[in-house]
């Protein structure tokens, strides 16, 4: 494998939480010293049930959250943390970009699509107005939107269209890595397919690498080369998508695979619950109830 474009080294994140009987030390480890790497132009899936630490990982990589320990490297260079100069902040922006799950709150409701993209271009690149307009048009075309939508406010756009705008905005910075955190989960089936195709086209055209976060294994296989499977803040299995989906080694991966509805599928109860509720005081849904059944 060539030199990885993104590398996560022993990344760990501990959240302070209210002290309860489940959490006597008042600490909750959302990510346990995990490492993985993403090849240039590659596409790595991070899968796992809700609460397994996928979003935490993404927020640490883009710098929205500060890691308890460990490092994030882009092109072999550790990413800056904490306060930094405007120039360094911008350079970081050109390394990794992110698209969030909820298309309805990912865009400034008062900003037209074109202005949103132009603002990002102005921040990162020194270009004239003509050149900038040309680039905006190019980005809009790249994600499959048209001129009319470019002049629209977000509220005039559907969920799928908004998500494309969010992708275009992220691509405007010409990042080396694009993180997609459940970016197609909120979309309708027919729209989801459109956006997945757009993502495939974009990767082919720009060579950007994807870190694709999802709990949907069917989608993984459509867009990713490699996969890491997460559970309770730990990576429990990793490998090329084809291998992992065909010969899952870990029982949890098998379980994840078995629960995807498909023709001829019948749902089965695998366990009764038993796990205590997650520490209160944090806003996210805790780990699902099925865990205790697994080794």
């Amino acid at each position: 494998m060539s030199h990885p474009v993104l590398e996560v080294r022993d990344l760990r994140k501990v959240y302070p939480v209210a002290v309860t009987e489940d959490c006597p030390d008042g600490e909750f480890t959302a990510l346990h010293r995990e490492s993985f790497a993403l090849a240039p132009g590659g596409s790595l899936a991070v899968v796992g049930e809700s609460g397994s630490g996928k979003t935490t990982c993404a927020r640490l990589i883009v710098g929205l959250e500060r890691a308890t320990s460990g490092a994030v490297l882009v092109d072999g260079v550790e990413r800056g943390r904490g306060r930094m100069s405007a120039a360094r902040r911008r350079r970081r922006g050109r390394e990794v970009q992110i698209v969030f799950q909820d298309p309805y709150s990912s865009l400034d409701p008062r900003q037209r699509v074109r202005d949103c993209l132009a603002e990002v271009l102005t921040l990162h690149f020194d270009m004239g107005a003509r050149q900038r307009d040309g680039r905006v048009a190019e980005l809009i075309d790249q994600v499959g939107l048209d001129e009319r939508q470019a002049g629209a406010l977000p509220r005039a756009l559907s969920g799928g269209q908004r998500q494309r705008v969010a992708i275009a905005r992220a691509l405007a910075a010409e990042p080396k890595v694009l993180i997609l955190d459940e970016a197609v989960a909120a979309l309708d089936v027919s729209i989801q397919a459109q956006v997945l195709n757009v993502l495939a086209d974009v990767r082919e055209a720009t060579g950007v690498a994807y870190l694709f976060i999802t709990h949907d294994l069917a989608v993984v296989q459509q867009v990713c080369d490699d996969v890491v499977v997460m559970r309770s803040g730990r990576i429990i299995e990793r490998g090329p998508v084809a291998d992992v989906l065909e010969r899952p080694a870990h029982p949890y991966t098998r379980r994840l695979l078995a629960s995807v509805p498909r023709p001829g599928w019948t749902p089965r109860r695998r366990a009764t619950e038993g796990r205590p509720p997650a520490p209160s005081g944090h806003p996210l849904p805790p780990v699902s109830e099925t865990k205790e059944a697994l080794p």
């Binding site: 929205l64 902040r89 970009q97 909820d102 990002v120 921040l123 905005r169």
Partner: peptide
């Protein structure tokens, strides 16, 4: 706490 603000932060806006 809305994602659009987070997206701007990630872009590198102050």
């Amino acid at each position: 706490n809305l994602p659009y603000i987070a997206a701007l932060e990630v872009q590198g806006f102050g």
